[in-house]
Computed example of a mutant assay.
Amino acid sequence: MASDDPSAPLPTELSAVPETALWTLYQRAVEARRPEPLLDDPKAVELVDRIDYPFEERFGTSALQAQLQALRVACFDREVADFLAREPRGTVVCLGEGLETQYWRVDNGRAQWLTVDLPESVALREQLLPPGPRQRYLAADATELGWTDEVDLSREVLVTAQGLCMYLRPAQVRALIAGCAERLPGGSMVLDAVPRWFARLVRDGKLHTSGYQVPPMPWGMDAGERAKLRTASPAVVGVRDVRPAGGRGLVGALLPLVLAVPPLANRRPSVTVLEFAERPDPS
């Protein structure tokens, strides 16, 4: 039975892919606790302290993993912040958001935010991160596209799919991109992908800690393949790479090489922005 004390630790149990939300939350918090973090995320620290869950026992502690996660998240933050600078009253639609705390890092005080996630993930998010006046949580399967009917098309729209697509089948990824492009004209989408070699490691069960096995990742895409995303639909009219910046220690030293030198540059994790065609003028 849940405690009536809102400050009491909250027992948490999620299944399979939804549990990855706890992994990414923990990595952000580990980085945020550093004296000079690459990602300032006090809300993530607050949540890890609030949730009754064996984070360290399940996921281990790795400064490298935390740094890499922060670099990836910062790519998304940068794109959302740039969008809100251009479209202060736009809508940010976050697919499969889990316990992402981006709203508290980059919100501008005027935008609308819509989270679309599976029912168990939304239920936990509502407990831990109750929505504010400009936030809405929708319990739905992001791949079924009915959520697009809930988006106000009088506003500019940016869709984020952070840590989502790798857990979908390739056909689902293409259908999701096509559906967003065709139903949200003039909008854009930012998504991330793991390279094919990494997806194979996960599918072979080789990515795990002593207490946690990463769920299978059916979809992988090498960074050099990003142009293929345009073939999902004629309504996808632009594809752009989002490159991580900064880094600490060895990661910071090697990052420019990883981004520039083949074959590493073509077989690295990637964050990509897709631009959607405007609705045709009926006249």
Rank of each mutant, 00 (worst) to 15 (best):
L145A: 08
E46G: 12
P280F: 04
P11I: 06
R174Y: 11
G252M: 02
L257W: 14
G220F: 10
D41Q: 04
C180F: 10
C94N: 15
S121R: 02
L250T: 12
L14T: 00
V202H: 14
L68G: 11
L264M: 12
L264G: 07
A70T: 01
P131R: 00
T231D: 15
A66P: 05
E97N: 12
F83T: 04
P216Y: 04
A81Q: 08
G205Y: 01
N266G: 14
D52G: 07
Y53R: 06
L207I: 15
V202T: 14
L71G: 03
V106M: 08
E156S: 14
P216Q: 10
A29G: 02
A178G: 10
T24W: 01
Q162P: 11
Y103N: 08
E19W: 07
L191N: 00
K43W: 13
P195L: 08
A81D: 04
L158M: 09
I51C: 05
E100K: 09
G132W: 03
S188D: 11
D222E: 04
A16L: 12
P133C: 03
G252Y: 04
M217N: 02
C75G: 05
R174K: 13
G146T: 14
F83E: 01
P262C: 06
A16Q: 09
G186T: 01
F76Y: 04
E57L: 13
P218R: 06
Q112V: 14
V93G: 08
V151C: 01
L47N: 06
A223F: 08
R196S: 10
R28Q: 03
L191D: 00
P54E: 00
A8L: 08
D149K: 15
A265D: 12
L129T: 01
D52K: 15
P282Y: 01
G179Y: 00
A74P: 06
D77Y: 07
L168M: 07
G146A: 13
A2W: 13
G205C: 04
D5C: 07
P119Q: 03
P269Y: 11
S121I: 04
V236I: 00
T91H: 09
Q102T: 13
